[in-house]
Structures are given as C-alpha cells and as structure tokens.
Amino acid sequence: MPTEFEPLRALAGGGLIGLAAVLLMLGFGRILGATGILAGFLTPASLQDWSWRAALLLGMASGPLAYAAVTGAMPTIAVPVGTPMLLAGGVLVGLGVTFGSGCTSGHGVCGLARLSPRSLAATLTFMATAGAAVYAVRHVFGG
C-alpha cells in the first residue's frame, strides 16, 4: 500500500509533538512519553496522579477530531495488516516498552533531546528491529 511523501506535514506535525513535550516539561517537569503516561494511568499511584494522566490521554484522543475540525476531514488511518498481526504486535509493543522503559516519544524524542545515551541505545535498537520486522513480513514471508 503506497503512501505519499509529505515532508511539510511531517515537519509541522513533528514540531507540534515537540511543542507538547516542551510544554509538559515547562509546566509540570515531566517527560512526554506515551508509554509512561499510559502505564501510570493503568496502575496509578494516587487519584491525583491518575487524573492528570487521564486529562492528557483525553487530549491526545481528541487529536483526530481537532484535526477534522481544522482540515474538514478525519486523518487517514489505513491498517495494512490483519487482526492477528495487530494483536501480536500490540502484545510485543506492550512487553517491549515496559521492559525498555519507553517508546518513540519517550526515548526517540524526549530522551534524544536530553542527549541520553540510554535513549540513543534504545532508539537505535527499536528502529533496527522495526526495519527488520517489516523486511521479514513483506519481503521474506511475502506479507
């Protein structure tokens, strides 16, 4: 399933992701990692700890509707894999981000911006294994 190369949308969207990370650090001194925020939401330390995570997640999930309000169309979400792959991938992502203490936002954006060697090691690793998995699925097993 080919997709269009859209560098300007990508840059602008990336800039907003970065802006959100900077604002969370400026206001509340926290890393904007989707993994950490979700994990703390699922097993909260206190009601106060749960409520800010709930508000942030609600804001995130309002993103597509806000996008539709601005552009007049919902963002494209094309899923080129079947439900078994989604389920297997989801479990692996859940295991991996918990053992590895972060994902693309926590390690790949916030950690790299802090020049954390730990985040650099994690980011290089997950980019490499993601590439290997896509290659295996699409070109070795024939997808």
Partner: peptide
C-alpha cells in the same frame, strides 16, 4: 525491551 518493541511496531 527496545528490540521487542521494534518488532511489535514493525508487525502492527
């Protein structure tokens, strides 16, 4: 953990 995450990301 990062390796597992990447594999899951690449699958889903």
């Amino acid at each position: 953990g990062a390796a597992l995450f990447g594999v899951g990301w690449g699958i889903a």
